[in-house]
């Protein structure tokens, strides 16, 4: 195995026991996304109160990297303000799991790691645009999501 580990204890553990796994009925934000080439497929559900994220859940199927990163993302955004979450960067998520090296070492697996962040950014974008009618608040989230990987 190479110097940059992927399958750490933490990742295996999260993939076995994902956090916030499940579904929210009629959520404020719902986004489905998938990586067609590798088969990761998730649904992200978010409820907000005013600007604050009160509840996050996800379900779906994916590899260990996808499951672990999605779990960590849900943990990170719970209780945060949408404004804060909007500005989340790739590294904010990847560094939580020690996966920053994937950006350079594995253009394939980085998609597994960032699928949930992409879904989240798209989800918040459509929440602002479609539900709140606030394109200004949505900013360039859509472009950002599209160019994550």
């Amino acid at each position: 195995m190479s110097a940059d580990p992927i399958y750490t204890e933490m990742i295996i553990e999260y993939s076995r026991n994902p956090s916030n796994f499940g579904k929210i009925e009629n959520p404020h934000i719902h986004r489905h996304d998938s990586n067609p080439l590798c088969g990761d497929s998730i649904d992200l559900y978010v409820n907000v109160d005013g600007n604050k994220i009160t509840e996050v859940k996800f379900d779906g199927k994916g590899c260990a990297i996808c499951m672990a990163c999605t779990s960590v993302l849900t943990e990170m955004i719970k209780g945060k303000n949408l404004e804060e979450v909007k500005n989340f960067k790739k590294d904010d998520l990847l560094s939580e799991l020690g996966l920053e090296h994937l950006i350079k070492t594995s253009p394939v697996r980085i998609k597994c790691a960032l699928l949930s962040l992409k879904a989240l950014k798209y989800g918040i974008y459509s929440y602002f645009v479609d539900k709140m009618n606030d394109t200004e608040a949505a900013g360039n989230l859509k472009e950002e999501a599209a160019s994550l990987y």
Partner: peptide, 12 residues
């Protein structure tokens, strides 16, 4: 275990 995790480990 997801197949992509298997492939990544054997690829190493």
């Amino acid at each position: 275990v997801h197949p992509h995790d298997v492939a990544t480990i054997v690829d190493k």
